[in-house]
Design a protein around this nucleic acid. Structure first.
Length: 424
RNA sequence: GUGGCUGUAGCUCAGUUGGUUAGAGCAUCAGGUUGUGGUCCUGAGGGUCGCGGGUUCAAAUCCCGUCAGCCACCCCA
């Protein structure tokens, strides 16, 4: 039988690599708590219609990237992103009536049926926030700021925030018409993709990388010039606030979100130490989504950080917290002969009952072999239990770093004595 | 979904124009020291050369297919 492997685009996170993941999650959580965001957990799958309604039935994600399960008349999909589920939970639990403004954070796996490449897999991890119930431009700035603070806490360097405003739905409808009018006479000069995009997603044309499309992009109308004064003013407020807070924010008119529910601020954090796929976080304001899902007209803004791309960037930057490493256990009980194996097992268990992290041998290894293993694992104290120790009701403790042996009575004070030795 | 590159031990890689039992370093295990680690020395285990087919007296090596990984698109958190 062929050896099994995990499905394409998924990976096992082995014990050595989990400290890196924890580093990201812990940093994120502490920044969120400082800013009064509260954790929310939604199911890993939702009714498919939630994503169809929120992302749009013709978006690529809905059309071909969802993991969908049909059983009887139940049709669910593994969540491809975190925003729609949180908004759904907000509305379902009547939070819009109880306490309309809430700041949430969440973290966990998302799923998309995509072709895997570096920083992109079929099960990927995100941490993110959704601040629901306010249209304040201060909140726009806060959300970008805390993403920046989160990356600072993680120790990431070399990144910039690329931000843009796409106005409100009205602004965008207007601009769509303006852009189409501009591009239509030039369409024959554009690449094949752009010829499709003019109908499907005309905003993407501004972001086209094909050389032949560059000249007509340079002359293209700018969104900011066609936006209502109110929309433009709120973007200016957010932008200057961020600049005064030393957030590395740059205006980038090519940032365009694919989903219809986005309004006003859209942004992406990009790290230079990644390849072509250089985004480590993305987000924006989505004032349209809550009504799309049947709720009242409330504003909301959020972002999500890609955990694995962030880890990749931290790794190339040589950040020590993300290097693979052994899990730390300070104590090890080593039997000298086969006669003490059971006693060693029981002693280890007794120490654990006193709150000490402790391991012992399960492979019938020689004492010499146990010391070699202890050294590799960074054990601090080796508790040696041989025939003589058992007879005299003592243990011999080797302090590995100092190469010193200490004999301690094996009585009710042993855990305290070991704790004292660990502290030195 | 499209295109390109790669695929030899757990890892990093050698492997001469196709030629006999496919190698090294690291890692693992055991021993040198039968109650003591980090250094050193000795030895051992581990590979149907991604998989399938073809060419050939002979294939890790050449050809085709397939799968997987990587890279770039498409698209996007």
């Amino acid at each position: 039988m062929a050896r099994m492997s995990c499905p394409r685009g998924t990976e096992d996170l082995l014990p050595e690599s989990l400290p890196a993941l924890e580093h990201v999650f812990h940093s994120f959580r502490s920044v969120m708590e400082r800013h009064a965001y509260r954790e929310i957990r939604t199911p890993l799958f939702e009714e498919t219609s939630l994503f169809v309604r929120s992302l749009g039935d013709q978006s690529d994600v809905v059309e071909k990237e969802m993991f969908t399960v049909q059983r009887g008349d139940t049709n669910v999909s593994f969540r491809p992103e975190g925003t729609a589920p949180v908004v759904r939970a907000y509305l379902q639990n009547n939070l819009d009536k109880i306490r309309p403004f809430q700041k949430f954070w969440y973290g966990g796996p998302m799923f998309r049926f995509e072709r895997p490449q570096a920083g992109r897999s079929r099960q990927f991890y995100q941490v993110g926030v959704e601040a629901i119930g306010s249209t304040s431009p201060l909140l726009d700035a806060e959300v970008v700021l805390i993403c920046h603070r989160a990356f600072q806490a993680m120790g990431l360097k070399n990144y910039q925030v690329h931000g843009n405003s796409i106005g409100d739905a009205q602004d965008r409808e207007l601009f769509r018409t303006v852009l189409r009018a501009y591009f239509t006479p030039l369409i024959m000069q554009r690449c094949d993709d752009c010829q499709r995009r003019i109908e499907r997603n005309v905003f993407r044309m501004l972001d086209c990388k094909v050389a032949q499309c560059q000249p007509s992009n340079k002359q293209a109308p700018r969104f900011l010039d066609h936006m209502s004064p109110v929309s433009r003013a709120r973007f200016e407020t957010t932008k200057s606030l961020l600049q005064s807070l030393d957030v590395p924010f740059v205006f980038d008119p090519s940032i365009v979100r694919g989903f219809d529910y986005y309004t006003h601020l859209v942004f992406e954090f990009r790290c230079k130490d990644l390849g072509a796929r250089d985004a480590v976080a993305g987000g924006g304001r989505y004032d349209g989504l809550i009504t799309d899902l049947g709720g009242p007209a409330l504003g909301a803004v959020g972002f999500a950080i890609g955990v694995l791309p962030t880890l990749l960037a931290l790794a190339t930057q040589g950040h020590p917290a993300v290097a693979p490493r052994e899990t730390f256990t300070p104590l090890f009980v080593a039997p000298v002969t086969d006669g003490e194996r059971t006693a060693a097992f029981l002693l280890a268990e007794r120490l654990r009952q006193h709150g000490l992290s402790c391991d012992t041998d399960y492979e019938d290894k020689s004492l010499r072999a146990l010391f070699k293993v202890a050294d590799k694992r960074g054990i601090q104290l080796m508790i040696v239990l041989g025939p003589e120790e058992v007879q005299q009701r003592v243990v011999k403790v080797r302090v590995l770093q100092k190469s010193e042996d200490v004999t301690l009575p094996d009585d009710e004070h042993l855990p305290t004595a070991l704790r004292a030795l660990l502290a030195t």
